[in-house]
Structures are given as C-alpha cells and as structure tokens.
C-alpha cells in the first residue's frame, strides 16, 4: 500500500461519506442516525410538548444529524425555553434528557469497547446531570453552575492525567516535587546536562 499524497491535516479528518462539519469518525451508523433523527427525538419532544414539541424535536434531530450531539442538545434545550416559557416540569426534563443520553449512547456500537463506552456515558451523564439537578434544587443557581463546571473540569483533567500515565507520557520532572535541577553553585542552572530528546532539541515539553 502506498500513500504518496501529502499528509491530510488531522483536524480536518472526517469519515468518508457524509461530510458535515459536526460529524466525527466515531459517529453511529446510519440506521441509528435515522432512528434518532426522525423517531426518538421528535417522539420524545412530541410526548412532552405536543405538535410544537414534535417540530422542536425534529429540529433537534436534524441539528444532531448535521452538527453533532452538543449542538442538538443546545437546540433542544433552547427550544424547551420557548415551549415552556414558565419552566419545564421535572418529568419532561427527565424525558428529554433521557432522549439525549440515547443520542450519546448511539456511538457505542462503533467504538472499540462498546460496554466501556456505555458505562462511561451513563456514569458521566448520571454524575454530571444528576449532580447539577441536585445542586440546582439545593443551592442558588449561580453556585450550582459553578459547581457543575468545576466538577466537569476536574473530571476532564483526571481523564487527561490517567491517559498520560497509561501511555507513559509523563515526564520525570512531573513526578519530582522538589526542585533538584542541577546548579553550579552560584544559582545558575547547569544547562550542560539538560536532557535532549535525541534529535538535538532540548526536551522542554512539560505535560500538565
């Protein structure tokens, strides 16, 4: 096999076939996409808010198909503000959230470990959404929002660090808590022993 064409920029790498900007290489197969777009989201919204809700659900489904889950979530919940100007009841909110969790789970089939993916998605959804709901009903909304964002940031950083450790990408400098950089006695850093990465460049990359 020979690939003599220039390398494709990775951030532009998209799955073959449909080339919508929000789609990812691990998006669910077309049957799931059809079901979610035409059936699950419109039906859920219709059950919650009637014909107007069905339209909102269809809109969310189309946005999900074109742009991906985050934007579908944004459109879906924003439409709830229109459909329920005075506030959404708990059951309706739970149903709509459940429909979007199904959207998240739809990608499990194309991942290497579907079970792990489902478990991770359920745990993350339950923890974040459940925690947010609990905080919103217990604390002031601003405090609940700050708490939710903090928990999300901490969880993301935890996954990031565990990935670095699993792949052996943590440099030794990260492991050392003390500053044992060699000095020549007058406080200057001894740069002669600065480790290099083999290609002549000073290895200054530090993973946070």
């Amino acid at each position: 096999m020979s690939a003599r064409e220039p390398a494709t920029p990775l951030e532009d790498a998209r799955p073959e076939g449909r080339r919508y900007p929000g789609r990812l290489s691990s998006d669910p197969p077309w049957l799931w996409q059809l079901l979610l777009t035409v059936v699950v989201l419109p039906a859920t919204f219709a059950f919650v808010a009637g014909p107007v809700g069905a339209l909102a659900g269809l809109l969310a489904g189309v946005v999900w198909y074109v742009a991906g889950t985050p934007y579908a979530v944004a459109v879906g919940y924003a439409s709830l503000l229109v459909v329920f100007p005075t506030g959404t009841d708990t059951l309706s909110l739970a149903l709509v959230t459940g429909a979007f969790v199904v959207c998240i789970l739809a990608s499990a089939g194309v991942t290497a470990s579907p079970v792990r993916f489902v478990v991770a998605a359920l745990v993350a959804s339950a923890a974040l959404v459940g925690g947010t709901w609990y905080a919103a009903t217990t604390w002031p909304l601003w405090l609940a929002a700050a708490s939710s964002l903090s928990v999300f940031a901490l969880a993301a950083y935890g996954v990031h660090r565990s990935e670095l450790v699993a792949l052996g990408l943590v440099s030794e400098a990260d492991d050392d808590t003390g500053d044992d950089t060699p000095t020549d006695g007058d406080g200057d850093t001894d740069t002669e022993n600065t480790p290099t990465d083999g290609d002549g460049d000073t290895d200054t990359e530090t993973r946070q």
Partner: peptide, 26 residues
C-alpha cells in the same frame, strides 16, 4: 435550570468522548 442541565449533558458527552479517545489511543 434547563440550560444548566443542557450544559451538564454536553459536558457528560465530552467526558465520554475523552474517555473513548484515551482508550482508543492506548
């Protein structure tokens, strides 16, 4: 509160994708 739930749901989706990426990378 619906908007905060939406933000949390997107966050959950991102966490799931991050975890899946880490697993695939390994």
């Amino acid at each position: 509160v619906e908007l905060l739930v939406a933000a949390s749901l997107v966050g959950a989706w991102l966490l799931t994708r991050q975890y899946a990426f880490a697993r695939d990378l390994q």
